[in-house]
Amino acid sequence: MKLTLNPMFSSLLRVPPAYFVFAALFVTLWVTKPQLMNVNVMGVFVRQVAPLGILVLGQLLVMRVRSIDLSGAGVLLIVNYMMSSGIMGDIHVLFYIPLALLLGLIVGLVNGYLIGRRRVSAVIATLAVTTILAGIVQFFASGKPPGAMPDFYNDIYNTKIWIFPSPVAFWIVLTVLMSVFLSRFVFGRYVASIGENPTAAHFSGVPVERTVIIAHVMASVIASIAALVQSSSIAVGSIRVGLEMPIDAVAATILGGVVFGRGEGGVWGPFFGVLCFALLFVVMTSFGVPEPGKLIARGLIILLAAILYGMRAAKS
């Protein structure tokens, strides 16, 4: 009982679903809420998803080497807490940046060691890392929300570069950098080969283990950058644990055509995947879909995309 697809459908499967979904959502909004269709309003919506967009850059990297990273939630939480609690004492505001990157580096090394060297299931490892980080943060915070974010970051967050809000511009710059890194450096070839066929990559002399470890380190450092941007967007710190961000990152990446090994969507497919989420939030909010509906939408997006991928893999 093999599922067969007609050729027309299967060639459509090659285009990242993000583009269709983006177009559909865009048209829906245009028709139903034309008043929202201006640069300023859209800028605000897109600015909201900039941290997610940055997180996705790490997620797509690990997913292309057939792994996954859900520890972004933990990194987000700990960076957020570090910046808003005053726990670091009276340090210069700029000092939070290297500290956040260092935290990301440590988390990434732990993930990379567990997944690349010890062959631990990536979901289990990164979920457990999130649990550990969340526990530590909540312990230090004694369950109470920490204080206010330094104004410095809020101020930058609210600036604009030409028509782009700064976080969006930063996100686009990082996306370009990642795109260049993956297409112009040997590392990108390693990633593509491991995603396509890890066994063949090993036989071709690609350092598979090392590449997977480095991908995880990079993903966590990128998560700490996303955390910095996310922290800048809020006035007061929060210690609420939510897997929404990393899960949205997974969903956006899959929507963008990057599915556990396959990298057809490149870097810009997932970029549009994130834009889909920006529009989706607007559509769902403006149609009054409650928070649980968003949870269901997240789950459905991942499941449906994984099913499409599974059907495609079964076919080839």
């Binding site: 040997v186 390693y190 690609v206």
Partner: peptide, 21 residues
């Protein structure tokens, strides 16, 4: 992957990850 990548992976794998491809 393209034929080109299948051929060059042998050369690339002897270079470091940070070398330009």
């Amino acid at each position: 992957l393209p034929i080109a990548d299948n051929i060059t992976i042998g050369l690339h794998s002897t270079e470091g990850g940070l070398a330009p491809a």
